[in-house]
Nucleic acid binder design. Sequence first.
DNA 1: GCTTGACTCTATAGTGACTATAGAGTTTAA
DNA 2: TTAAACTCTATAGTCACTATAGAGTCAAGC
Lengths: 135, 135
Amino acid sequence: MKIGELAKKTDCSVQTIRYYEKEQLLCTTQRSDGNFRLYDEAAVEQLLFIKLCRNLDLSLSEIRQLLTLKRSPGAQCDQVNRMMDTHIQQVETRIQELVQLREHLKSLRRSCSSERTIEQCGILQTLTTNQHQKR
Amino acid sequence: MKIGELAKKTDCSVQTIRYYEKEQLLCTTQRSDGNFRLYDEAAVEQLLFIKLCRNLDLSLSEIRQLLTLKRSPGAQCDQVNRMMDTHIQQVETRIQELVQLREHLKSLRRSCSSERTIEQCGILQTLTTNQHQKR
DNA sequence: GCTTGACTCTATAGTGACTATAGAGTTTAA
DNA sequence: TTAAACTCTATAGTCACTATAGAGTCAAGC
């Protein structure tokens, strides 16, 4: 199958597939006479695997590592587990940051009502006075 | 004061200040004979305002809007309120996405223990079988 | 007056994970 | 044969910086 069909089957854009190839996540094994990329079912599977990983917010580099690991089925899977643990921790941290941010934003928003002028705006006042704190 | 002093006072890198100038968030009103940027206290205030907004994850474009609004103190502040509401909503959505993602990652992680081989790895098995779902 | 070092200047390239475009070539159907 | 639909490579853009190169400026010490 050509790249367009692979794109449709995996709900991936054609450019993204070419980008993944450049990034060594999906290699094209065959080319047609007219130099078109040709793919088989294994490519569909691999691309769907990549998409699932991306949905888990794994970076392309992490996915590249997973793909390498998949190629040595006899090895221990500690590395996969460790990667997941690290990744879960990162997501956890980001959630906590965002929750704090949300509370900050909400309290800021409460400091203003809609009938004020810019000069009286509680939000701008808070941001402008010297209560400079770090995240 | 020169750019280095402004950078120290605001805990901002010199390059970032120049970048903000290029992005029209902080204009340099004066230059020295040797073409060095010169700043006053108002610049310190404005840069600290920008930093606070960045800590709230506001985009440079949103901050540019706020700075423009600040220059017309008589106008209504609805626009500020609306921007904050939109922004809070975005943060809320992102938190919910990440919470779902975290649960997905955790359940995936539970499917594997450390004494397995890659072939038996519950994580890779789940990601490889055809349970392809969208986020 | 000269040198050294710390500072500043502009311009350009890199980050990550794509997306979009230009300009060319290939294939397929009418 | 010709038009449309597809594909190719190469390059630039996104965001908010960060890093670098190569040049110029300035103050202190000799």
